[in-house]
């Protein structure tokens, strides 16, 4: 797909999609969205990037092997469930930490990290599949 228009536009779209995916993930707790959808959008962005430029380029722009994202995401979700051990609560108990940073009111919670983990897992695994399909899996 070496058309000029697509190659020029694609990075822009990809950037928008990535930002949008993070946005969707973060607000998922209150509005439609969440880690799954965010991750899927991010993976779609990666697909567009790889089609518009090349797999190698898309892989380079990630810096890290996509499966590392996936592993890290699952690990993060697991950790966010384990935190409740310290609180003498069962696995995956939601713990909330309300931070007042000056004007901003930030709510940090284990479900948030869990959702971020989902995002990373979905993005990583699907990204790996999409890139791998073009290169026989050799995407190191």
């Amino acid at each position: 797909m070496n058309t000029l228009i697509f190659r020029t536009i694609a990075p822009l779209i990809v950037a928008v999609m990535v930002v949008f995916s993070i946005f969707i993930t973060l607000r998922g707790h209150n509005e439609p969205g969440g880690g799954f959808i965010g991750g899927l959008i991010a993976a779609a962005a990666l697909a567009i990037l790889s089609i518009a430029t090349s797999v190698q380029q898309a892989r380079r722009s990630l810096h890290i092997h996509p499966l590392v994202f996936a592993g890290f995401g699952v690990f993060m979700a697991g950790v966010s469930g384990m935190v409740s051990m310290a609180a003498h609560a069962p696995f995956l108990t939601g713990l909330w930490l309300e931070l007042e940073l000056g004007e901003a009111h930030v709510a940090l919670s284990t479900p948030l990290f869990f959702d971020l983990g989902v995002y990373l897992a979905v993005f990583g695994a699907l990204g790996a599949v999409i890139l791998g399909l073009e290169t026989d899996g050799e995407i190191d």
Partner: peptide, 9 residues
């Protein structure tokens, strides 16, 4: 999903 990624690769 993660395992599917591993398995497919």
């Amino acid at each position: 999903i993660m395992v599917a990624g591993i398995a497919i690769l």
